[in-house]
Design a binder for these strands. Structure first.
Lengths: 339, 339
DNA sequence: TTGAAAGCGGTACCAG
DNA sequence: CTGGTACCGCTTTCAA
């Protein structure tokens, strides 16, 4: 690789001059700049990010720290898409994504240490166990951090607006004429309040609409357990006074519920209506298309990118923000009109 | 951050000695090593990866270059899982993953340039447009590269064994008693021969089993177009002599086909059998569970990791390899037994 | 407007 | 066994 020194020699100037010319500093003559840039180009000169990072103490790389429990992080149904838009958005701003972890080879260091070791300028936390001391260390420290789907008072967070999402969905179902709406919700994940937020929003919205929710209409399912969703669906349908519409923790579970309904030779939405949550591609491939709440994954990634970069480039303006990302109801065809 | 110099001062030795002690070189006394390590630990010393990379010209980071067309790369249904296992596997070997791209801020450089700029030790190519000059440059150059699902003679590749997968699937269906097997295949993607490989394997296996394939039993669908899968399913079912089993390009399309079947109030697998490909989570949540070929994503990631690291650490042994990753038939329940 | 030199944090050669 | 020192490639201060 051709270095700045070789360019300098070739141009008959000093390395300092080349550096300044290439960085378009004001104290170099226009003519000189042009000449140096031309020659550097011809020689195929490329800056060396490592050297620059060492000198500037800025790597222009952003760490992404994700949990690796089954079904979360990269194995999650939509986080990769968020990552994709995050990646594009930071790249547009001149940054790159690097994954942060704890064990590297046989060395073990804390996440914060790893961040410093690698010299990332900031870090995005997603799907991690927020109560772990190692994560707390990162959170409590004065290091640019954005948390995803989790609020910590001292750091900027970007979250889906589940409360609004559930509200919109319930209202949509209500407008279709349903009054007997059941909700199979996900498990309470220890480190995020998202399930609680959804369930509360469900109750609040129902109350707002003047509807009573029979206790047996709300069931605790699990996000990734479609069989359980099927069993709970059966329980709901076997109720003396069954619901006309069932809401599921997510699209995946809705597919499980749909299985139970198909087994009974019932037709969606004529005999019963269902609604999912997330709007993953499969929801559109189902027949009928699933009524669900589509999360705006692109906007999510964009918001994360914008905020982490802002934090990095403007550390003085350190007010933690709370960003909420709105989704929208995908009408699909799995919620029927009741007359 | 505490540097090696401060540790040296504190220990009353030279930086050289500290460096060697910390790297466990043989020319430092055991006692000294112990003492230095202890003090370094107490001081919370951390090496600086950037400085080390600059000096060693080894960053211990591996670039991942992925296409970003809709539905590929990170937005693909299973690549993120491959990436997840790749990530874990390289981390175990002391490396990290960084994404490589072309435009960074408003600078544009070729991929190869970006690799050099960032100083990654090697690069993994997936879902890229292999015919592009920029990719060719990377491929033709003497830089550690592993390609995913694409074979280039001079580089090591790791691919799914589609030929074997289709063969196993067809044989399984055959053993269930089916003789009239239709195949809706994916579109021919310009840069990878995977579709061709599958279709050829389909014909070969059918021939091997002594079965004739009516021309109208083989249809060109699209991987991500479930509606088209539905339409083609209708065409197949409307044939004077319809197939008893339909194979789809992937699980997603199979879901589309299933929709068409449900619309006709037919029951899978009693009235007609279907099979997918990929074994994504949704295939297990379908009712009945989809018969499909599950790709071994973990093994894929592992193999990529192993090979790129080997290439990096042993550049002399430069023989390009071709690795094939085997999948397995998930029996599910969507292919019925014919008597 | 240009250049010499220091230094970012390490590693490794070579001398002692 | 230990240490002085050059150097990796770049930026920046300060002097010319």
């Amino acid at each position: 690789m051709v270095s700045i020194k070789e360019v300098a020699r070739r141009c008959g100037v000093s390395v300092a001059t080349v550096s300044k010319a290439l960085n378009d500093k004001s104290d170099i003559g226009e003519e000189t700049k042009r000449r140096i840039r031309k020659i550097a180009d011809e020689m195929g000169y490329l800056p060396n990010a490592t050297a620059r990072a060492l000198r500037l103490k800025r790597s222009y790389s952003i760490g992404v720290l994700i949990g690796n429990e089954e079904g979360t992080g990269l194995t999650d149904e939509f986080f990769p898409k968020v990552l994709n838009s995050l990646k594009k958005a930071v790249e547009k701003r001149g940054y790159e994504i690097t994954f942060i972890n704890k064990e590297i080879g046989n060395h073990t260091m804390t996440y914060l240490e790893h961040c410093r070791y690698r010299g990332v300028d900031g870090v995005v936390l997603a799907y991690v166990k927020y109560w772990e001391p190692e994560i707390m260390e990162l959170l409590e420290n004065d290091f640019p951090v954005v948390t995803v789907d989790y609020v910590f008072d001292k750091k900027t967070s970007v979250c889906y607006d589940y409360a609004q999402g559930i509200k919109d969905l319930v209202k949509y179902i209500y407008e279709k004429g349903h009054r007997k709406i059941a909700y199979i919700h996900g498990e309470n994940v220890k480190y995020v309040g998202t399930t609680k937020e959804r369930v509360e929003s469900f109750y609040n919205t129902m109350a707002e609409l003047g509807l009573k929710v029979p206790e047996e209409y709300v069931k605790a399912g699990e996000y990734l357990n479609f069989r359980k969703a099927g069993r709970l669906t059966a329980q709901l349908m076997d109720l003396p006074d069954p619901p006309t519409c069932i809401m599921y923790p997510n699209d995946f579970s809705a597919l499980g519920g749909m299985g139970e309904i198909l087994k009974r030779k019932l037709v969606i939405p004529n005999d019963i209506s269902i609604a999912g949550y997330d709007g993953i591609p499969v929801s559109k491939a189902m027949t009928p298309e699933l009524t669900t709440l589509e999360q705006d994954l692109d906007k999510m990634g964009d918001a994360i990118a914008q905020n982490i970069v802002e934090l990095i480039e403007n550390p003085a303006n350190t007010e933690p923000k709370r960003i909420l990302i709105q989704g929208r109801v995908l009408q699909g065809g799995s919620v029927g009109k009741l007359i």
